[in-house]
């Protein structure tokens, strides 16, 4: 069965390594914080100027001065720090943040990503996404395999305005874990009960399928 948003987040959380600083984008990526594996210690960076972001506050303890990059009220954990936006992006551009997880509208087989604009329809802006994808060593994209019309978002080439070129290395969807290398998608894992055929049929980009494709494993 295809994963839900929480399942995608839970699978991405398995990629976390001890000691990493991690930036989570808005949407599914935010949910990754709920599934940190036992024994793994990571610290979350929010690009509006927080290191050591914690969970949502208890009711009545919301602070208008303490929000995340999605403008949601949040808290901090022990050892947190605050800083200005230039310092925040120095952390990102300077590769002091080990992992970026973000959403996408389209990803292409050479690692291009589009997630900020639909010409004539939706122009919200790129926020910090272009800085994040241009510099992060590890980028995982959390997204649905197809759009609402059923068209694949895992493409040979992106059709929407790009956010970054050749930067995505891993994609986790409701159906599969894909790696991008040598200009191709490589099928690494499939969601429990999802067939390789379904993944192939919903992937427009070139997909390398090994003889055995293991199912994702969840504890």
């Amino acid at each position: 069965m295809a994963l839900d948003k929480n399942g995608i987040a839970q699978r991405i959380a398995q990629e976390l390594k001890n000691g990493w600083y991690v930036n989570l984008g808005i949407g599914i990526p935010t949910l990754v914080a709920n599934y940190i594996p036992e024994g793994i210690e990571v610290e979350f960076q929010s690009e509006n100027g927080i290191l050591g972001m914690g969970p949502f506050p208890f009711e009545g303890e919301e602070d208008a001065d303490l929000i995340n990059a999605g403008k949601q009220t949040i808290t901090t954990v022990a050892g947190a720090s605050f800083f200005d936006s230039a310092t925040s992006f120095a952390m990102i551009r300077g590769q002091h943040v080990q992992l970026t997880v973000l959403g996408a509208m389209e990803v292409s087989q050479n690692g291009d990503i589009a997630n900020w604009k639909i010409p004539g329809k939706m122009v919200k802006g790129m926020g910090g996404a272009m800085d994040l994808v241009a510099s992060a060593e590890n980028i995982i994209v959390a997204m649905m395999h197809s759009n609402k019309a059923g068209e694949s978002k895992i493409l040979k080439e992106c059709t929407l305005p790009l956010t970054g070129v050749g930067c995505v290395k891993k994609v986790v969807t409701e159906l599969a874990v894909l790696e991008i290398k040598d200009g191709k998608f490589h099928l690494i894992e499939r969601a429990p009960g999802v067939s390789v055929e379904e993944i192939i049929s919903k992937t427009e980009g070139e997909l390398v399928v090994p003889d055995v494709v293991p199912e994702m494993h969840f504890d």
């Binding site: 690009e47 200005d84 936006s85 230039a86 551009r93 790129m126 926020g127 800085d131 241009a134």
Partner: peptide, 25 residues
């Protein structure tokens, strides 16, 4: 891009007329 916006303001105040960044390439 947000990081470029922040740095462009910082540069403006710091007397640096321009800088190179990978963001947006």
């Amino acid at each position: 891009p947000q990081g470029s916006l922040a740095e462009r303001c910082r540069a403006g105040g710091a007397g640096i007329p321009a800088f190179f960044t990978p963001a947006g390439y």
